[in-house]
Structures are given as structure tokens and as C-alpha cells.
Design a protein around this nucleic acid. Structure first.
Length: 551
RNA sequence: GGGCGCGUAGCUCAGUCGGUAGAGCAACUGGCUUUUAACCAGUAGGUCCCAGGUUCGAUCCCUGGCGCGCUCACCA
């Protein structure tokens, strides 16, 4: 923070900071000095010893930077060495080296050979003339061993190396007396100085807020975090290959929508200056993807970031990723088949088994999944028919549900309150009432219902699919009904362009939307959506308050 | 937005039945050539989240605020 520039411990350190970061000089001028000197006593050492640091707002070159580390960089520069050299080193992956090292009993092909690795240095264990320290790259951790007799020229500078520094090391792959694979270093170079010290070595980052705000630290400082995001990347890649193998084209449709349709949710609003009009950030890509079907693309999918202006929870982030796919000549039964085979495939590829553990329970994602009718579940758990309005209203009152002002919404609230907890799954709940499914085609057997299903695992809704309504007249009627409902989550106007697209003719089509974040949660056993998002939505940090005025 | 909980050293946490605070790790100094939470000795480090109130005195009690977590609501 500003005061560290105004309250240096030693002149040397200020010098080190200036050398290390020229902008420090700027920060130490007028404004900083004034705000500092107005009321607060000199803080002495406090600000210098930050670890991962407080989560306060502060300008660049913050109190995270440690003066000793800055001084070490300065010492290097004084010798003509660069603490931030322009090039990296050509390194081998640690995972491959570990695999090649073999075991103590059966040394692998790489045992005893020369190797170079690059990565982040962790806490050193210093024995005076011997130092051990793990180095971590994307693929794993490998211990390096530094011996004085092998590094005579470098040895006097060894204290310039800190935990968190990025290094490149070359040495011979071997083992210690305890048998641990170790790279016995013959050459070491600093690739980037870490001015900010890493979190405490044993606990790592445990403050959840710090973990989310400083994910760039969490990724290498917390066990298992990197693995979740590697798996997430693999899941998305597998989804693409799975669909492409079935003739699907990946497309990109607009994020800026003139009308927020395709789902019921409150949108974010933004403004386009040149056109001088407002746009909504999309709440679903659905209506554009179906326009693609009208255009003859036949099988399309998009991994779409959607934005919904609603609360944040362990299952909700205001921006989230949804896979949506649409297939011409298919109906919702085909979507169930795609859903269950895709999930089984992902589980096998990611975890090597179809059984996943999530929130302490096991779920078998082996296809086929169970199917149960919405209406039957409703009857079984709510104790009445879904369209028996007096009975449903009575049940809602019993449950203490407040009336949303619309019977069908109320009915669905009763369903969620009574049924959803029982949906351990994996399960397809099929044939939803038409009134809560404005984009789905009516069932040929029962006009009160639609050919629609939702996929549930662990009581959590993972996906939503239906045979798409392609009758423009009926679609327009349902849109007008939505608009007339004045529901704040319904679109404010009818999407005439979409109705017109249907007037040109959309083939019989089925579509499926799957929440990617929730899917990753289930496949990687993470309880919170925040743990599968690299940078989950958080309230922005407050700006530093003004220093109190002197009396 | 409602309810519950939390905020003390850089990190993880004690503690003060109201008299301005401690440990381990991290940092710094010294020692140590096979450790892996290395070890041993020493040093330094705190506006006890912020603002009011009660009080001789508040980190502690009260009120308000800020931040975060859990939960409810809504959705995928």
C-alpha cells in the first residue's frame, strides 16, 4: 500500500524498490505522502512482512512485495544479472521425468541422465552445504538437490533464491538416501523473481475468499486445484470431440441480444454507443441456434457463456457455461440417448469408471438412465394431479409457498419443493406441462404435456431438453402469453424475428442444454460451482478509504 | 434480498468473565552434506475489520457499516 513507500525501514530498501520498479517513485510523491502523513503513525515493519497479504485494494507494487526480495533483485542487477531474464529455458515435463526415473529396485531409462526442468521453487530445506527443494511445473513436483561442491561459483548467492521464485535447473536425475527421485543440480538460473512470498507452506491458501480472488496463487499453492481445472479442460475437449464425431458443427452465436430470450431469467443490460441502443447479454443461445437449424446447419452445438442477473450460490454464478446442441430430424428421445452416452463416456475418460462420487454419495453414470414422468412424480410426492388447481393450491399453502401470481409457476414450485430432493439420479424427468415449457413441442399423446425432459443428478438439475416447437403460429401465441404475464423474468417483447425464422420452416428438431459447470462439479466431486470456475464472480474490492483528516 | 455464522501477526489459529495480546509456520541472523511440515539457537513483526455508543478504561459489551462463508429464494 502507499504507506510502504512513505515509511521505509531502511534507505537501502527504498532504493531497491526504485530499481526494481520505477513506478514506485511516482507513488511516493505528493498524494501518497499527504494521505499518509495526515493521521497515521509510521507502521514500521508491519507492511513489509506480508505473505499472501490482505485482500485490500491497493495500487500496483503493493504491500505484497517483500523488501528482502526486492533487495535481492537489486543485488543481482548490480552484478549485471537480470532477475527477469528475457528468455525461458527448454525444459522437460516433470511427470515424464518421474515416469522415466522408475523405482529404486528397477531404475527407469532416465535414471542417471541429464535433464532440465523449469518451474516454481517451493520451500527450501537448507543444510548449510546442501539444500533440498521441490520444483513444481504444470505436470507435477520434483525435488532438486543443490550441493555446494557442485555449484561453487553460484553458492555464495544461494540466499537470493526464495520460495515462489521461478527457476530453470539442469542436473542429473538420481535419488537420495531415502530413495526419493531428485535432480542433482549442476546449473541453476532464476527465470523470474517472486516479489510476493507464497502462502504458508503447510496450510496453503485456506481462506476461501483469498483462494477465489488470488486463484493464480491457489492453483499452485493448494492441493488438487490444478487437477480440477485440467479435468475441466479435458471435459470440454471431450464434449467437442464426442459431438463432432456425430456430425455436429460448433458455431458461435451472438452474446449481445436485442431481446433476452430462450430461457426465463433476468438479463444484464449493456449499451452500444454507435448504434445508441441497449443490448442484453444472452441468457441462452437457444433461439439463435435454432435459427441455424432453419438455415440448414442440421446439427449444431455451442459451448455458450450465458449471463443471468440473479443471486450467487454454490450452484449459481452470474456467468456460466452451457452446452446447447440441436439436431434436425431428432426428437427428445434421441437427446436422452445423447445425454446418457455422453455422460457415461465423460465419466470413463475422466475417472476411468462410470461411478462418480459427489457430495459423499455414489452415482453410476452408466447408460441408460432411468426415466420418470413429471406427472407421476408429481402425483407420488405432492399427492395430487398437477392440473388439479384447488388441490395443488392447498398443497402449496401446506408447504408455505408464496403465490408467484401464476398457477403454473406455483405448480412447478410445488414440484420442486416436494419432488426434487428425491431425484438422486441420474434420472430423466420426462413430459413437462406445456405451460412451463414455452419452446417445447406438445406431446402427441397428451396436449397438456410437452416432449421435454430434465436431467437430474444428486437433486441438481444438469440439463434440459425437448422436441423443439416449430409451429410459428403456436410459438407466437406462447410468446405473447409470456409477455402478457408481466413476469420480470420473461422477455419484455415477442421475438418477431425468431417467429419469422420459423415461418420459413424449421425441420422437426430436438435440442439439449447441459450446464457445463455443474457437470464438471459432478465429474470432479466439487461441492461448489466456484471450485470449478477459475475466477468465480465476487464483489469487487472496496477502494482504499480516504485517510481521516487531521483535526 | 431474508436468516445464521465468521473477521486477532504475512498464513493457520489461541486468548482476554472489560485493564491495548500469544503459539506454530513464513521472514531475518547464526549453525548443520540426504531432508521432505527438516532440525537447533536468536531477532523482528499487531490501528485485535471499520465507525459510533456505554465505561475511568473496549480487541472483548451494544448499535450501525463493510467483507466473506453457509442457508433460503431463483435458475442451469
Amino acid at each position: 500500500m502507499l504507506r510502504i513507500f512513505a515509511a521505509p525501514k531502511r534507505a537501502l530498501e527504498v532504493e531497491a524498490m526504485r530499481l526494481a520498479h520505477p513506478s514506485a517513485t511516482v507513488l511516493a510523491t505528493d498524494k501518497a505522502m499527504n494521505s499518509f502523513s495526515s493521521a497515521r503513525p509510521v507502521q514500521g515493519h508491519r507492511a513489509w512482512n506480508r505473505g499472501v497479504g490482505p485482500l485490500s485494494w491497493s495500487p500496483a507494487m503493493t504491500e505484497l512485495a517483500h523488501p528482502d526480495r526486492l533487495a535481492k533483485a537489486r543485488a543481482m542487477r548490480a552484478r549485471g544479472e537480470d532477475p527477469f531474464p528475457p528468455r525461458g529455458v527448454k525444459a522437460e515435463s516433470i511427470a515424464e521425468l518421474l515416469a522415466g526415473a522408475g523405482t529404486l529396485e528397477a531404475p527407469g531409462p532416465r535414471f542417471g541422465t541429464k535433464a532440465t526442468i523449469a518451474g516454481r521453487l517451493h520451500a527450501q530445506r537448507d543444510f548449510g552445504k546442501l539444500i533440498f527443494a521441490p520444483v513444481q511445473d504444470l505436470t507435477g513436483k520434483l525435488q532438486i538437490g543443490l550441493k555446494r561442491d557442485a555449484l561453487e561459483a553460484w553458492w555464495p548467492n544461494r540466499k537470493e533464491l526464495d520460495a515462489g521464485d521461478l527457476v530453470g535447473v539442469t542436473g542429473e536425475l538420481g535419488r537420495t538416501q531415502k530413495g526419493e527421485v531428485t535432480l542433482w543440480v549442476s546449473e541453476i538460473q532464476l527465470l523470474s523473481k517472486a516479489y510476493a512470498p507464497p502462502p504458508e507452506k503447510w496450510h496453503g491458501l485456506v481462506d476461501v475468499e483469498a483462494r477465489y480472488r488470488r486463484r493464480y496463487v491457489d492453483l499452485w499453492a493448494s492441493e488438487g486445484v490444478l487437477d480440477v481445472f485440467k479435468k475441466r479442460s479435458k471435459i470440454v475437449s471431450l464434449v467437442r470431440r464426442f459431438l463432432e464425431a456425430q456430425g455436429y458443427l460448433e458455431v458461435e452465436t451472438p452474446v449481445l441480444h436485442p431481446i433476452a430470450g430462450g430461457a426465463t431469467a433476468r438479463p444484464f443490460i449493456t449499451h452500444h454507443n454507435a448504434l445508441d441502443c441497449d443490448f442484453y447479454l444472452r441468457i441462452a443461445p437457444e433461439l439463435y441456434l435454432k435459427r441455424c437449424i432453419v438455415g440448414g446447419l442440421e446439427r449444431v452445438f455451442e459451448i455458450a457463456r450465458n449471463f443471468r442477473n440473479e443471486g450467487i450460490s454454490t450452484r449459481h454464478n452470474p456467468e456460466f457455461s452451457m452446452l446447447e446442441l440441436y439436431e434436425a430430424q431428432a426428437d427428445y428421445r434421441r437427446m436422452m440417448e445423447i445425454g446418457e452416452t455422453l455422460l457415461e463416456h465423460l465419466a470413463r475418460e475422466i475417472n476411468g469408471t462410470t461411478v462418480v462420487t459427489f457430495r459423499g454419495k455414489e452415482y453410476d453414470l452408466k447408460a441408460p438412465f432411468k426415466r420418470e414422468r413429471y406427472t407421476e412424480l408429481f402425483r407420488r410426492h405432492a399427492g395430487c394431479e398437477f392440473d388439479d388447481e384447488p388441490a395443488v393450491r392447498k398443497k402449496a399453502t401446506e408447504l408455505g409457498l408464496k403465490d408467484p401470481g401464476n398457477y403454473w409457476k406455483l405448480m412447478n414450485d410445488v414440484f420442486e419443493a416436494t419432488v426434487e430432493d428425491h431425484l438422486t439420479g441420474p434420472l430423466f424427468v420426462v413430459d413437462y406441462p406445456v405451460q412451463i415449457s414455452p419452446l417445447a413441442k406438445q406431446s402427441p399423446e397428451d396436449p397438456r404435456l410437452t416432449e421435454r425432459f430434465e436431467l437430474f443428478i444428486a437433486g441438481m438439475e444438469l440439463g434440459n431438453a425437448f422436441s423443439e416447437l416449430n409451429d410459428p403460429e403456436e410459438q407466437e401465441r406462447r410468446f405473447r402469453e409470456q409477455v402478457a404475464s408481466k413476469d420480470p423474468e420473461a422477455p419484455g417483447e415477442v421475438d418477431i424475428d425468431y417467429v419469422q425464422a420459423l415461418e420459413y420452416g424449421m425441420p422437426p428438431t430436438a435440442g439439449f442444454g447441459i450446464g457445463i459447470d455443474r457437470l464438471v462439479m459432478v465429474l470432479t466431486n466439487q461441492d461448489s460451482i466456484r471450485d470449478v470456475l477459475l475466477f468465480p464472480a465476487l464483489r469487487p474490492l472496496a477502494k482504499e478509504p480516504e485517510a481521516p483528516k487531521a483535526p
